[in-house]
Amino acid sequence: MDRKYSRRQFIGFSSAALGSSLFLKACTNPASQTTSAGTNNFKVAIVLPGNITDRAWNQSGYEGITLTKQKLGAETSYVEKVGQPDQAEALSDFARRGYNLVFAHGGQFDAAVQQVAGQFPNTFFVAVNGAATGKNIAALRINHMQVSYLCGIIGASMTKSNQLAYLAGQSFEATTQELRGFELGAQSVKPNIKISSSFTGDWNDVAKAKEAALALIASGADVLYQWFDVASPAVLQTAAEKGVYAFGNTTDQLEIAPKAVLTSALKRLDLAIAYLAEQAKTGQLTGQKYLIGLEKPEIVSLGRFGTIVPEAIQTKALTAKAAIAGNKIQFESCQNGGKDTWCLKETAT
């Protein structure tokens, strides 16, 4: 059985542990940073910013450690709905209790991971969607730019107002890249298309997400690319109510609002998490960035197309998908308007 720790429980455990931390360091042997495949006490935990039933980001993370338990026989635990002020303590709590591998599920955990990792050299931390790396820190990244580029092609092909919008919980490297990919995809179809963006500051606040969606729709956007957790269905349903289009994110969200959802940016974090856990158990996980894109279609892909998407537009997106997977379309760092960003690079066969 997976062990669940509520926010109150992990704070309680941590308070007791803090008082005896020096004693524990002197009297116990720390857990191995990586555990060999033949060891039975491989312990994996995940710290989640939201609810494991959100049908989006947090659920994918929870399913990742569930799959890890099934595949590797690991002892697994999780804590959900951890706010930014409690991130470092949640990570530390699992490390103090001898977990070999701890996933921090979201780019917003980067600072907390960097703060904690040096104190617990025998625990390996994985910043999912993050940019942090170090001796015992790995970053697990989805190539958001690739799949959002495809959504940009679809959105630009479907819009009637020539205005698209991107909205998400927070602005950090992963969401910035996803927005840029969406822009580049849309501009490849319509160079002068308008793309707005909005960040609510909260991945789970339904009211804020709906308010942001309504504001973007009122400004003229008729295609919304959203990335939220618990708040995700509210945006998709708002799009349906207002007669505009939207994209699902992380999981296939077509069924949430079939009249609005064009397709979904699939990111099988469960498979990616289980893969890195296997690397850790066999001692092969290192402090680097693991970037996974369309070259691994079992992890990153497009979801089902809505019936509202014409076959010709589906074919256009799938042709671009094959070009990206075959490295004929790439993204490279560049400067645009004096700012660092990413630009499209098309290569020969």
Rank of each mutant, 00 (worst) to 15 (best):
I65N: 10
T66D: 15
T68F: 13
T68A: 15
K69V: 09
K69C: 05
Q70N: 04
K71R: 15
L72G: 15
L72I: 13
G73P: 11
G73L: 08
A74L: 07
E75F: 05
E75R: 00
E75N: 08
T76L: 02
T76H: 00
T76A: 04
S77G: 14
S77W: 11
Y78G: 09
Y78S: 10
Y78K: 12
V79F: 10
V82R: 04
V82Y: 08
V82H: 13
V82C: 11
G83S: 13
Q84Y: 04
Q84D: 13
D86F: 02
Q87S: 03
A90G: 02
A90L: 00
S92T: 14
D93R: 07
A95L: 04
A95P: 01
A95Q: 00
A95H: 03
R96G: 11
R96V: 10
R96Y: 13
G98M: 12
G98C: 15
G98W: 08
G98A: 07
Y99P: 03
Y99C: 06
Y99D: 05
N100C: 07
N100L: 14
L101N: 06
L101W: 06
L101T: 12
L101F: 07
V102P: 00
V102W: 01
V102R: 00
A104Q: 01
A104G: 05
G106T: 05
G107S: 08
G107C: 05
G107L: 03
G107Y: 12
Q108K: 05
Q108Y: 14
D110S: 11
A112D: 02
V113I: 14
Q114P: 05
Q114M: 06
Q115A: 09
Q115P: 04
V116L: 00
A117I: 08
A117P: 06
A117W: 11
G118Q: 09
F120V: 10
P121A: 04
P121C: 14
N122L: 10
F124A: 11
V126C: 09
V126F: 11
A127G: 10
N129M: 02
G130M: 03
A131I: 15
A131R: 15
G134S: 12
G134Y: 13
K135I: 12
K135P: 15
N136W: 06
N136G: 15
I137Q: 01
A138R: 01
A138N: 06
A139L: 00
A139S: 03
R141I: 12
I142M: 13
I142T: 10
I142N: 10
I142C: 11
H144E: 12
H144K: 06
H144N: 07
M145V: 15
M145C: 14
Q146K: 12
Q146F: 08
C151R: 01
C151G: 14
G152C: 14
G152K: 04
G152S: 12
G152E: 09
S157K: 05
T159I: 00
T159L: 00
S161K: 07
S161G: 07
Q163C: 13
Q163I: 09
L164W: 04
L164F: 02
A165L: 06
A165K: 01
L167S: 02
L167K: 02
L167M: 05
